[in-house]
Amino acid sequence: MKTFRMITVLSALVLAPLTHAAETKDSAASAMAAAQSAWDEAAKLGYWWLTTERVMKESKKQFEAGQYDEAKALADEAVLLSKATLAQAKRESETWQARMPR
């Protein structure tokens, strides 16, 4: 009984960082997928920012290096940037004609 409890405690101690790593890897991956789809949505309208592309590249680089927290943070930033891009696309499609000389 005692041994069993000890094994449980030990294995929890050993596995915890592993499951944490798996979790952060997953959440980084899904943040990156969200970043990609936000990018695609704006790009479909012909709007894309160099800044966002750079942040996404850096996120991939961090992911490949196993730096999942950094990768996720960057991917989240890219989502925000792409949302701003999308807002720009929408605003511009409604207002650009006012800029024409007449």
Binding site: G46, E92, R99, M100
Partner: peptide, 17 residues
């Protein structure tokens, strides 16, 4: 082409015009 010329682009939010 005209629309492109007058629409603001990029993070700095500038149109060609």
């Amino acid at each position: 082409g005209k629309m492109h010329y007058f629409t603001k682009r990029g993070q700095l939010n500038f149109a060609c015009s």
